Amino acid sequence: MNGRAVNVAIVGTGVIGAGWATHFLAQGFAVTATDPADGAEARLREWIDGNWPAVERLGLADGASRQNLTFTADVGAAVRHADFIQESGPERLDIKHALIANIEAAAKADAIIASSSSGLSVSEMQAGARHPERIVLGHPFNPSHIIPLVEVGGGRLTAPDNVAKAMAFYAATGKKPIRIDKEVKGHIANRLQVALWQEAISLVQRGVASVEAIDAAIAYGPGLRWALLGPFLNLHASGGSGGVTHLLQHLGPAQREWAKDLGTYPASDDYIETIAKGVDAELAPYDFPEMLRQRDELLIQLLDAKRNLSQIP
């Protein structure tokens, strides 16, 4: 593909699939989307229209146009001429297997099939496939038309060259692909999120702080630094002249003690009502759709700023 593809197929047009469709259209590709749900085409076009101002702000490639979208309910027709196929179906292994079988029945033998799966392993998804060597993970982050991260990896039967091709393709479209070297449930970023959510829920359950206070602790504290540098580089920056080595030697004993006191994920759903009430209370003074619109605007401003800083990874 030489880092780019001409024809992209989107299989599954929910929120993630719609974000992918927006992104690839903004990159100037011809996109064919498919989804069997009633009203899927109308919803997809509405979502793309809603997403378009954001990608315009991020910058459109030559030839970018919403008119380059074709929709069909026929999976075979959608993938027949595709060079790159982004599968974003429901997070169920039986559905993934059925989708991959339908895709492979019509797709070109060298077309890469990338799954947006947030937790399933590629090895599980490629079981029984006719060409398992071209099935890869291409897991985005929501909103996927704005957030650059894509987690890329292969399964036991994936050809390493196809993982490399997927990495190059995503990078050429302006994404920030990271390679997963070993399959693990939930991949990388979701596992890091779950670790934080686990402790956040525990702190609420233990009466340490409110939902609102915990959100503020991240949004006005480490979250601001995490948006610029990752956890290890932030540790290094906190260590002064001794860097991460000094920091871990200095705080390591205390952190080990804190780690022993961390909560575990609740064994039942009893906690959900408490968290939901806390979220409702936090949102009471605000217009949530407008909050999300402003969030996306700030994300775009941040990405614009980061692009202009040569020493920010």
Score class of each variant (00 low, 15 high):
residue 92 R to I: 00
residue 93 L to I: 14
residue 94 D to L: 02
residue 94 D to V: 05
residue 94 D to A: 11
residue 95 I to L: 14
residue 95 I to K: 02
residue 97 H to P: 02
residue 97 H to D: 02
residue 97 H to R: 13
residue 97 H to I: 01
residue 98 A to C: 06
residue 99 L to Q: 07
residue 103 I to C: 03
residue 104 E to V: 03
residue 104 E to C: 03
residue 105 A to V: 00
residue 108 K to L: 01
residue 110 D to E: 14
residue 110 D to S: 12
residue 110 D to G: 03
residue 111 A to K: 00
residue 111 A to D: 07
residue 112 I to F: 01
residue 112 I to C: 00
residue 112 I to D: 01
residue 112 I to E: 00
residue 113 I to D: 01
residue 114 A to D: 03
residue 114 A to V: 01
residue 114 A to C: 05
residue 115 S to T: 12
residue 116 S to P: 03
residue 118 S to F: 03
residue 118 S to N: 10
residue 120 L to I: 12
residue 121 S to C: 14
residue 121 S to V: 09
residue 121 S to Q: 15
residue 123 S to T: 15
residue 123 S to D: 15
residue 124 E to T: 15
residue 126 Q to Y: 10
residue 127 A to E: 15
residue 128 G to V: 13
residue 129 A to L: 05
residue 130 R to D: 15
residue 130 R to H: 15
residue 131 H to P: 07
residue 131 H to D: 09
residue 131 H to R: 15
residue 132 P to E: 07
residue 132 P to H: 10
residue 136 V to T: 13
residue 136 V to D: 02
residue 136 V to M: 00
residue 137 L to V: 06
residue 137 L to D: 01
residue 137 L to W: 02
residue 141 F to H: 11
residue 142 N to K: 09
residue 142 N to E: 04
residue 143 P to S: 13
residue 143 P to D: 12
residue 143 P to C: 08
residue 144 S to C: 12
residue 145 H to S: 09
residue 145 H to K: 11
residue 145 H to Q: 14
residue 147 I to D: 06
residue 147 I to C: 11
residue 148 P to H: 14
residue 150 V to R: 04
residue 151 E to W: 03
residue 151 E to N: 08
residue 152 V to D: 02
residue 153 G to W: 00
residue 153 G to K: 02
residue 154 G to V: 03
residue 155 G to F: 05
residue 156 R to T: 14
residue 157 L to E: 12
residue 158 T to P: 02
residue 158 T to D: 05
residue 158 T to F: 06
residue 158 T to E: 05
residue 159 A to P: 04
residue 159 A to S: 11
residue 161 D to K: 13
residue 161 D to L: 09
residue 161 D to A: 14
residue 163 V to R: 01
residue 164 A to T: 10
residue 165 K to E: 15
residue 166 A to W: 01
residue 166 A to I: 03
residue 169 F to H: 14
residue 169 F to V: 09
residue 169 F to A: 11
residue 170 Y to V: 07
residue 170 Y to G: 06
residue 170 Y to K: 05
residue 173 T to K: 08
residue 174 G to D: 09
residue 174 G to M: 09
residue 174 G to Q: 10
residue 174 G to C: 05
residue 175 K to F: 08
residue 177 P to H: 11
residue 177 P to S: 11
residue 178 I to T: 09
residue 179 R to P: 00
residue 179 R to K: 13
residue 180 I to T: 06
residue 181 D to N: 14
residue 182 K to L: 09
residue 182 K to T: 12
residue 182 K to Q: 14
residue 183 E to A: 05
residue 184 V to H: 00
residue 184 V to E: 04
residue 185 K to D: 12
residue 186 G to V: 08
residue 186 G to L: 08
residue 187 H to V: 01
residue 189 A to N: 03
residue 190 N to L: 04
residue 190 N to E: 09
residue 190 N to I: 10
residue 191 R to H: 06
residue 191 R to P: 10
residue 191 R to I: 03
residue 195 A to V: 09
residue 198 Q to I: 01
residue 198 Q to D: 07
residue 198 Q to K: 15
residue 199 E to P: 06
residue 200 A to T: 07
residue 200 A to F: 07
residue 201 I to F: 10
residue 202 S to P: 04
residue 203 L to F: 09
residue 204 V to F: 09
residue 207 G to Q: 08
residue 210 S to D: 11
residue 210 S to L: 08
